[in-house]
Amino acid sequence: MPQNFRLNFNGAPAARELRAAAARGLFLGAEHVLGVSNDRVPLDEGFLQNTGIASVDEGDLTAMVSYDGPYAVVQHERLDFRHAPGREAKYLENSLNSERQQVQALIAAQIRRALR
């Protein structure tokens, strides 16, 4: 004999929690990229390194890592500048590219945690 079931699912709280988890994961990923980038950023007196910041726009679910020094773009883009060992141009771009899988894992871990 067939049985009938009624299920009322209120998905809005679950969607909010998953979105918040994704934002937490994005922030952790951005912080990770910032840390790796700080190890590569050209270093003279440490000013540029100290201007690095990670942020997340929770509405758009986008993360940003930036440096605010007046010469941050020049140091990032000029491949002909000489840097101390371990320091490099493209310090932010290279850090993001090398850490892509780690960032994905950080985001996924936060989403998995929210699904428990």
Rank of each mutant, 00 (worst) to 15 (best):
G69F: 08
N8M: 06
V36D: 04
A15S: 08
A12M: 07
K90Q: 14
V56Y: 02
T62P: 01
E88M: 14
Q75D: 07
N8Q: 10
R87D: 03
V73F: 11
E88F: 04
L43N: 06
G11E: 05
I53H: 09
G86N: 10
N10E: 12
R82Y: 09
D39R: 13
E31C: 04
F9P: 02
N38Q: 15
H83Q: 07
D68N: 12
G25C: 00
S37R: 01
G11Q: 06
S66Y: 03
A84F: 10
R19A: 14
A30N: 04
L43R: 08
N38K: 15
V65W: 06
R19W: 05
L92Q: 03
G52S: 10
L43A: 00
L43Y: 13
G59Y: 02
S66T: 09
R6W: 07
L61H: 03
V33C: 01
T62I: 12
N50S: 15
Y91R: 06
G46A: 06
N50D: 14
F81M: 15
H83C: 10
E77D: 14
F9Q: 03
A15L: 13
H76Q: 11
D68S: 12
P13G: 05
G25I: 03
F81N: 10
G35N: 11
R24D: 12
F9N: 03
G86L: 11
V74R: 14
A20S: 14
M64N: 08
R19M: 05
R19C: 05
H32C: 01
E93Q: 10
S55P: 05
R40H: 14
V33P: 00
D68C: 04
